[in-house]
Amino acid sequence: MGLDGSKYAFVPFILLISLMLLLPMAVLLYEGYNHLLNAFMSPLFIEGAVVTILGASIAAALTLALGLPTAYAISRGLIPKPLDSVIGGLLTSPLTIPHTIVGLSLLILVSPISPIPIIRKLPLVDTIWGLVAAYFIVSAPIAIGAIRQVFDEVDPVYEYVGLTLGLSQWGVFTRVVIPMTRKELVSSFLLAWGRSISEFGSIVILTYYIINPPFFNYVYPLPTLIWYSYEVYGLPLALGYASASLIISIIIIVLIELISGGGRMEFKLW
C-alpha cells in the first residue's frame, strides 16, 4: 500500500490551534517563573489553595453522589419519555448561562427577597458552602455528561446477567456498572474538580472571600486572589499567583490523562 502524503495536510491545523491555545499559558509561565517561589510560600496563596481545593473536592464528591445515578438513569432509559429530554436539557442548561448569572441567582436565592423563606437561612454568602454550591452548579453538567458517555459505552449484557442472577436494577448499578467504570469515574471526579478550581464568574459575586471561623477568615479563593492582587498590587504579584495556579491545573490535566488512558474496563460481578 502506497504512502498517503495528504495526511500531512492536517499538521498546520494542529500546530495552529496548539499555538493559539498554549502560547498564552507558556508566556504566562515564562514571565511568572521568577515569582513562583514567593507565590507558593505566600500565606494568602496557601490559604486560598486550601479553601479552593476543599470546596472543589466537596463539590466534585457531591457531583458524583448525585450525578452517577442520574446519568445512569438517563443512559439506560429509566426516565419515561419525553421527561428524559426535559431533564437532560435542564441539567445541561448551566453550560449556556453566564456564570455571573449563576452567582447572582444563588445570591438572590438566599437574600431577604427570596420567595422561598426556608432557603433564606442557608449560609451561602461568603462561606465555604456557598463556594461548594457555585462549584457544583458550574461543574456538574460537564461531569454528568462525561459520566453518561461512559455508561453509554458499557455493554448492557453484563447488566442483563446481573438481573438474571437476582440483582435489582440498583444492585446492578452499584455492583456491576460502577466497578466496571471506576477508572472513568475517578477521571470524571477530577474533571469536575478541575472545572471547579477554575471558576471565577459566580464566586466573585457569591463568595468573594470565605469567612468560616475558626478555619477561614477572609480567605480569597485562588481566582479571586489573582484578580484582587492584580487590581490592588499590580501585575508582578498576580503573575506569581496565576503561574502557581496554572501549574496546579496542569497537574490535574496530567492526572486525568493518566487515569483515563490506562487500560480497558474490567468486569467483575463479585
Score class of each variant (00 low, 15 high):
Ile87Ala: 03
Ala133Leu: 13
Gly67Leu: 13
Leu106Glu: 01
Ile87Lys: 00
Ile116Gly: 02
Ser93Ile: 10
Ser111Arg: 06
Ala59Glu: 01
Ile113Arg: 13
Leu90His: 00
Gly55His: 13
Leu106Ala: 05
Ile97Pro: 04
Thr63Trp: 03
Gly67Met: 12
Leu68Glu: 07
Val132Ala: 05
Arg120Asp: 04
Leu54Glu: 15
Ser85Arg: 03
Leu109Asn: 05
Leu64Met: 00
Arg120Pro: 05
Pro94Tyr: 08
Ala65Trp: 15
Ile101Asn: 09
Gly103Met: 05
Ser75Ile: 13
Leu68Gln: 10
Ala61Lys: 09
Ile118Trp: 10
Ile74Glu: 12
Tyr72Glu: 12
Trp129Tyr: 13
Gly130Arg: 08
Leu54Ile: 15
Ser57Lys: 13
Thr92Gly: 11
Gly77Gln: 14
Leu124Pro: 00
Ile74Ser: 05
Arg76Met: 15
Ser57Pro: 06
Ala133Ile: 12
Ala59Thr: 00
Leu122Asn: 05
Ile101Met: 11
Ile113Cys: 10
Ala65Glu: 11
Ala134His: 07
Ile97Lys: 09
Gly88His: 04
Ile79Ser: 02
Leu66Phe: 15
Ile101Glu: 08
Pro115Val: 06
Leu106Ser: 01
Leu90Gln: 00
Leu90Cys: 01
Pro123Asp: 12
Ala73Met: 14
Leu95Ser: 07
Leu131Gly: 10
Ala61Arg: 11
Leu62Phe: 07
Ala71Glu: 02
Ser111Leu: 02
Pro80Leu: 07
Pro115Leu: 06
Leu109Trp: 04
Leu64Asp: 00
Pro115Asp: 02
Ile113Trp: 15
Ile119Leu: 14
Ile58Trp: 03
Ala60Ile: 05
Leu91Arg: 12
Asp126Gly: 11
Leu107Glu: 10
Val86Lys: 03
Ile113Met: 13
Leu107Arg: 10
Leu62Ser: 04
Ala71Cys: 02
Gly77Pro: 11
Leu66Asp: 11
Ala61Gln: 08
Ala133His: 12
Leu104Ser: 07
Ala134Phe: 03
Ser75Val: 10
Lys81Gly: 00
Ile87Trp: 02
Ile118Phe: 07
Ala59Ile: 04
Leu78Pro: 00
Pro69Cys: 12
Leu95Pro: 15
